[in-house]
Write a protein that binds this DNA or RNA. Structure first.
Lengths: 130, 130
DNA sequence: ACTTGACCTTCCCATTACTGGAAGCTCCAT
DNA sequence: ATGGAGCTTCCAGTAATGGGAAGGTCAAGT
């Protein structure tokens, strides 16, 4: 398979696949006589794995760790679980931060008339600490 | 005031203040005879405004728009409200995405024994589409 | 045989919002 | 006068791509 095909099947842009190779996340692909990257089923599975892990918000660093664990037949599942749990905690932190922002903003938005008049509690609040 | 002092009072690192100047978010600061940046109360208020807007998750682009609205005595509050509402929608989208990730991950984590044995539903799921 | 167009290659730059560090100047206190 | 804190500029790096140029390759259509 050429890069465009694994791109279609994995859902990763060709640019991204080359990037993953350049940073060492995946091993350099084989090449055809013409210099085109050549992928086999195994490579495709790896790319799909990466795509799914990324879609769950794992960083490239974390994906790298997951790939190693995936390729280690004897790793303890506790290691994977630990990694995943830390990631969920990270997600929780982000959600909490976003929701705190939203709360503040929603309050301000409710107080703002939103008409032609210039007076605006949103700007007033940003201008003055509370 | 020199940059270190407005930094302390605004909560923005000196690096960041210089960066904001370099990208044109704030006007170039005045200078002392020695070439140090000099700020007045007004500048400080602007920096505080920026800091608060950033802490609510507004992008620099949005902060720039907010600053213009703030400096426009005659703008309609509707414009500000609109900008804020769109930002809240953006936050909602991010929260939804994060929570969807979290849900998937939590399910997988629950299914994983997390002991010394290698079998791990988390990796299995990442490896096989479902 | 030739050309077109879709792929492929590498390379470099841009993005967002900073952060770190080096080399060097200034100011203030001892 | 010497030391250290704070200031200056400039360069480079971060995460994870995306855009686009310049050029090679391949299969199909004329």
């Amino acid at each position: 398979m050429k890069i465009g095909q694994v791109s279609d099947k994995s859902g990763l842009p060709t640019k991204t696949i080359r990037y993953y190779e350049s940073i060492g996340l995946i091993a350099p692909a084989g090449r055809t006589a013409a210099g085109y990257r050549a992928y086999d089923k195994n490579d495709l599975e790896t790319l799909k794995f990466i795509q799914r892990a990324r879609s769950l918000g794992f960083s490239i660093q974390e994906v790298s760790a997951l790939l190693m664990l995936w390729n280690d037949r004897n790793r303890a599942s506790a290691q994977v679980k630990e990694l995943a749990k830390r990631h969920v905690e990270e997600i929780d932190r982000k959600v909490a931060e976003l929701q705190s922002m939203k709360e503040t903003l929603s309050t301000l938005i409710d107080k703002c008339h939103g008409d032609d008049r210039p007076n605006c509690p949103i700007l007033n609040d940003l201008a003055n600490a509370r």
